[in-house]
Computed example of a mutant assay.
Amino acid sequence: MESVLVPCNTGDHWVLCEVFLKEGKVNLYDSLCDRNGKSDRLKDIPGLLYLLPSILKHAGYYAHMKMPPHTSPFTAENIEPTILPQQDDGYSCGAFVCKYAELILFGIPLSSWMDMFGQKDIPTIRQAMAFEIFVNGELC
């Protein structure tokens, strides 16, 4: 396992955090950036960055991996918003987080995401998610 995907709610918005356990770093994927193309959501996830080393230590991750535990908080950086599909409304962040996670899990290079989907595709993405839940929901 190279990374763990963690959807995070920042109070009024969902973002996706990709946590690289061995490296002690987090990449933040934000679909709602300001007019200048900047995301300031890193300020909203300090608790995650501080808690991760402790949680991993208590879960036995470091012992299992035979590595010394991180003693400092994880570091985080934004994925450059100019290469991420962005929402243009105030309520599609959850669908964007799900799509970002899907593309990461399938190993789709970040450089091709802008060509794969955007705000106009969100209704179809929502329908596909609802279909998957309906068809496969009984397996849970």
Rank of each mutant, 00 (worst) to 15 (best):
V4Y: 02
A59C: 11
T75Y: 14
K25P: 00
C140G: 14
E2Q: 13
Q127V: 00
I104A: 00
D30H: 00
P53I: 03
R126C: 03
S72D: 13
G118R: 06
Q119H: 10
D12Q: 09
G37M: 07
G37S: 03
P81Q: 12
M1K: 05
P7M: 04
K25W: 01
I45K: 02
C33L: 06
M1P: 04
S3Q: 08
M67H: 11
P69L: 09
K120D: 08
A63D: 15
P109C: 02
K22E: 10
G107T: 04
N136F: 06
I104F: 02
P46V: 08
A130K: 13
M129K: 04
A130E: 15
E138D: 13
V15G: 00
P85K: 00
H58W: 07
L28R: 00
R126F: 02
T82P: 03
D12A: 03
F134H: 15
L48C: 02
L49K: 00
D89S: 10
V135F: 14
I133H: 09
L32T: 07
C98N: 11
P85Q: 02
F20S: 11
N27T: 00
S111G: 01
V97H: 03
V97I: 11
S112D: 13
H13R: 01
S72R: 06
M129T: 03
M116R: 06
S111E: 13
Y29C: 05
Q87N: 00
C33G: 08
D88Y: 14
V97D: 06
L84K: 01
I55V: 03
N27H: 03
C8R: 12
L48E: 07
M1E: 14
Q86E: 08
S112Y: 11
V26K: 00
T71H: 06
S3G: 06
M114L: 15
